[in-house]
């Protein structure tokens, strides 16, 4: 008779402790969740950019969701270098065609995937893309990590070409946008 010592009072103790535990956990949640991005921060979803002034070879930095975004008008040589890089050489293998909608326009979140610095536009690194000044990560002309401590390629944000000269950063790409590249 193991249960001889278990009384109805024990049940009440366990039940009230469990209810208090759940209540405490539930009341903690607002204090934790208040630190997540607020509604006005989340509302900064899309930003439109006019591509007309960007000349071939130029990189411009714009702001989207408080993050810097690179818009790079790649030269044919840069496109070729990105397309020709053997996938086997890559730390985070991804084909260039999967990172662009139009080969000429490379659009990337300009946040180093190591510790969040903005890779330098002036120092292009060993692969002609970007060099992060903080801890020496080298990115190629597709924004893929080639050397250094960063674990991943520069992120491609969602974007949509509104016309040949206008791009909307933050919007889901139009269906079939990638097909344009595949020809």
């Amino acid at each position: 008779m193991d249960n001889a010592n278990v009384t109805r009072r024990d049940f009440i103790y366990v039940a009230s402790a469990a209810a208090a535990g759940v209540g405490l956990a539930a009341s903690l949640w607002p204090f934790i969740d208040q630190m997540n991005p607020a509604a006005d921060t989340l509302a900064l979803k899309e930003v439109e950019f006019d591509l007309t002034p960007v000349i071939p070879g130029q990189i411009v930095t714009i702001e989207w969701q408080k993050k810097p975004v690179f818009i790079r008008r790649r030269t044919p040589e840069e496109v070729k270098a990105a397309e020709d890089a053997p996938l086997g050489d890559l730390i985070d293998p991804q084909a260039d065609k999967d990172r662009v909608q139009k080969p000429e326009w490379l659009i990337l979140v300009a946040t180093c995937t190591h510790l969040g610095c903005v890779p330098s536009k002036e120092m292009k690194g060993e692969f002609g893309g970007w060099l992060c000044p903080c801890h020496g990560s080298h990115y190629d002309t597709s924004g893929r990590i080639r050397k250094g401590p960063a674990p991943k390629n520069l992120e491609v944000p969602p974007y949509q070409f509104l016309s040949d000269t206008k791009v909307l950063i933050g919007a889901a790409p139009k269906a079939g946008a990638a097909a344009e590249h595949h020809g």
Binding site: I32, P37, T41, K66, K67
Partner: peptide, 24 residues
Amino acid sequence: NFFSAIPVIGESITQWLWGSFAVD
């Protein structure tokens, strides 16, 4: 961004620390 090194939940943790998508 040290916290972004944590697998799977790293990005959610950094956004929770920032209260935004970047330091803000």
